[in-house]
Design a protein around this nucleic acid. Structure first.
Lengths: 113, 113
DNA sequence: AACGAAAGTTCCAGAAAGAAACGCGAGGCG
DNA sequence: CGCCTCGCGTTTCTTTCTGGAACTTTCGTT
C-alpha cells in the first residue's frame, strides 16, 4: 500500500498519519506550538531543507491544520498559523515530548568523550 | 540535518520522532496496541512491504520499544511484544485515533459516487 | 544602482521505498 | 525419500523521495 492510499484507510490512526505522520511534519507542528509562524523561522530551526519545508507547509494548509495568512501586503508575505484543528494535535506532541525526556536522554558522553 | 542526527537533538520531541516518527513505525505500534505480535500479522495488515517491516521491527527492538521473544523452539520462531516503554506511547496513538475520527472521516462519497 | 530580506523554486546525486521473487529451516505427507 | 507448506525474513531491481545548495522574485533600504 502506498502512503497516499492511507487517506481512506478503515483505521483513523492511519488516516491521521497520512496527514501528519511523516518525518518532518510533526517537527513543523512542534515549532508551531512553540509560537513560530514564518517560513524562515521554521527553516532556521534547522530541521529540514527549504524544499521539504515548502512542501509540508502546503500540505498542512491543504488539510486545514495550518492557515496561510498574509501578514504584509506591500511585499506580499505570508505566514502560517495553527487552526483549531491543528491545536487538537498538541496533546500528541506533548506525550512525545514527555516520552523523549524520559526514555531518550541526550547522549552527551558520546559526543564529548 | 539528517534524520539520524535527531538522536541528540536538544528537543525531546525530535528525539522521540527519530525513533518512532517515520511513515510506518507508528502503524506497527498501532497493530501492537491491537494485540498483534507476529511478523505475518503485521504484514497482513497491509501497510508496508516485508522489506520495510523487517527493518522497522529491528529498529523498534533496538530501542527497547518491542521485545523479540521466542515463542517456539522446534522451528525457531519469534514474535514481537510491547515493552512498558512501548506501552507509554499508546496515549499518543489514542489521540491520533480520536483526531482522525473527528477530522478525517472516510470519503466514501468520493469512492462510491 | 547595489544590497539585503522573505518566501519560495529548481537542479542533481544519493538514499529510501515499493514490488515481487528468493532463501531457509522445520514439519507434514504420500 | 522427495516435495510441499509455513513462518520469517532477504535480495534484487526500479521508482520515488530527500539533502544540499544555488537561484528567483518582489519589494524596501542606502
Amino acid at each position: 500500500m502506498k502512503w497516499s492510499e492511507l487517506n481512506d484507510n478503515w483505521c483513523p490512526v492511519a488516516r491521521t498519519l497520512s496527514v501528519v505522520g511523516d518525518r518532518w511534519t510533526l517537527l513543523i507542528l512542534r515549532d508551531c506550538f512553540l509560537g513560530k509562524t514564518k517560513f524562515e523561522e521554521f527553516a532556521a530551526s534547522g530541521g529540514m531543507t527549504r524544499h521539504i519545508l515548502a512542501d509540508r507547509l502546503k500540505r498542512l494548509v491543504e488539510f486545514g491544520i495550518l492557515e496561510r495568512r498574509a501578514y504584509s501586503t506591500s511585499p506580499k508575505r505570508y505566514d502560517y498559523v495553527l487552526t483549531s484543528k491543528g491545536e487538537e494535535l498538541r496533546p500528541a506532541l506533548s506525550i512525545m515530548k514527555e516520552w523523549g525526556k524520559k526514555h531518550l536522554p541526550i547522549r552527551r558522553a558520546a559526543l564529548e568523550g
